[in-house]
Simulated assay, not measured.
Amino acid sequence: MEIYYVYAIRSERDGRIYVGLSQNVEKRLNEHNEGRTKSTKGYIPWQLIYKEEVGNRLTARKREKYYKSGIGKEFLKSLQIE
């Protein structure tokens, strides 16, 4: 069975939050920090602030959408400790 994770990373440059899904969060974080992701490369370095195991890809997409929504984004912002 495939296990997916929904994750949130925060740019140490300007504090923006990016939400994504992956089967290997550590590898994906490295890809973000190596500039291999077009949408995040201008805001390196990134720090993992949240990771949630969600099971399959369909469930992961639903959770990803939630965390990209207003209420989900607010939850992620509440995790940030400056």
Rank of each mutant, 00 (worst) to 15 (best):
M1P: 08
I3G: 07
Y5W: 15
Y7C: 05
A8R: 11
A8G: 14
I9G: 00
I9Q: 05
R13A: 10
R13M: 13
D14T: 11
I17M: 04
Y18A: 01
Y18R: 09
V19N: 03
S22K: 05
N24M: 00
N24L: 00
V25D: 00
V25T: 13
V25Q: 00
E26A: 09
K27S: 09
R28C: 01
R28Y: 01
N30Y: 06
E31N: 11
E34I: 02
G35E: 03
T37P: 00
T37Q: 14
K38T: 04
S39Q: 14
T40N: 09
W46R: 14
Q47E: 15
Q47W: 07
L48Q: 15
I49V: 12
V54N: 07
V54T: 15
N56R: 10
N56L: 04
R57N: 07
R63W: 11
E64Q: 09
K65P: 00
K65M: 06
Y66V: 13
Y67F: 15
K68D: 06
G70S: 04
G70Q: 02
G70E: 03
I71E: 11
G72Q: 04
K73F: 04
L76C: 10
L76P: 12
L76E: 13
K77F: 04
K77G: 01
Q80K: 05
Q80W: 10
Q80G: 08
I81F: 02
E82S: 08
E82M: 03
